[in-house]
């Protein structure tokens, strides 16, 4: 008997991506650059987050033509984003055969109360999180992979660091917590009790957790690995830089060899200018994508 869409198959797919870099791409040409650089997957988008920010208006799921173009261009897995709570966008992406769906705060939410019930789908989902409450709720809904949110499209690593540190610190606290403290902890975080129990038993999250939102340099990618990320999403950082090909390769290598500082230094020397960054304090609360998701 062959069973598709099981938790093991969905979570397992993310396990295979560990130690790798997933890159945002907007067409076939960029997808090929990412694949040649050693990306483990690409995220097909109409616009990278920094352009979404600049364009304003409503950001929806990518045009299916672009998703298809990217799927035809590369042999590595192709991910695509749907709006938070947009059941139909998700089902359409699933029907197209996308390998992973990101229910993403980078797009304008379709539902300001409910996320998707992700365990109903055969396709696996990745979701953003800033803390253990968000992480556990997304796992509870069926996310097979997490990524810390950071602040997308800024080229500023500060929020990614804040969120990765927060999640990992809270996981460590839960791991050593006594059983009788766990229910109150679940209440305080608005987190499903069963998921916290699983985290306590495993001593880690039950799914892979990548870093995202602000990675602009090889050093940024390596820093996130140092802080305990299982891998890295790079959005605007590659294709908004001076030399996307070199940046893509350097970020992949720095992620693998994140503690080989001599190598990272050498990689960084050849690169040219990274994407222009944004100070988080200049972003008003409503302009912060990380505030989306509940």
């Amino acid at each position: 008997m062959q069973q598709t869409g099981t938790e093991r198959v969905k979570r397992g797919m993310a396990e295979m991506q560990k130690g790798g870099v997933i890159m945002d791409v907007v067409n076939a040409e960029q997808a090929k650059v990412a694949e040649a650089a050693g990306a483990v997957a690409v995220m097909a988008l109409e616009r990278v987050p920094s352009d979404i920010r600049a364009a304003g208006g409503v950001a929806r799921a990518c045009d299916p033509r672009i998703v298809e173009e990217v799927m035809n261009a590369v042999s590595i897995p192709v991910m695509a984003k749907c709006r938070i709570g947009h059941i139909t966008e998700a089902r359409v992406l699933e029907a197209m055969g996308v390998d992973y769906i990101d229910e993403s705060e980078v797009l304008t939410p379709a539902d300001e109360v409910f996320h998707l019930k992700k365990d109903d789908y055969t396709v696996p989902f990745v979701c953003g999180c800033r803390n253990i409450g968000e992480a556990a709720r997304r796992i509870g809904e069926g996310a097979a992979m997490l990524r810390t949110k950071g602040e997308p499209g800024t080229g500023n690593i500060v929020e990614a660091v804040r969120h990765m540190r927060m999640v990992n610190q809270q996981v460590r606290q839960i791991a050593v917590m006594s059983d009788d403290e766990l229910m109150t902890e679940a209440k305080n975080h608005g987190a499903p009790y069963d998921i916290l129990k699983e985290i306590k038993e495993l001593g880690k999250l039950p799914v892979v957790n990548f870093a995202a939102g602000g990675v602009a340099t090889p050093q940024d990618a390596a820093l996130m690995m140092e802080l305990g990320a299982d891998g890295v999403f790079v959005g605007s950082g590659v294709f908004k830089s001076d030399n996307p090909e070199k940046f893509a390769k350097a970020i992949v290598e720095a992620t693998t060899h994140y503690q080989d500082y001599e190598l990272i230094g050498k990689l960084a020397k050849e690169l040219g200018t990274a994407m222009k960054g944004l100070d988080i304090n200049q972003l008003s609360l409503e302009d912060r994508m990380q505030e989306r998701g509940w």
């Binding site: 008997m1 062959q2 099981t6 996308v98 055969t122 396709v123």
Partner: peptide, 15 residues
Amino acid sequence: ERNSFGRQVDSFEAE
């Protein structure tokens, strides 16, 4: 042959 059982939605477990 790579990806010969299909894409991720076709991924499966079996004994």
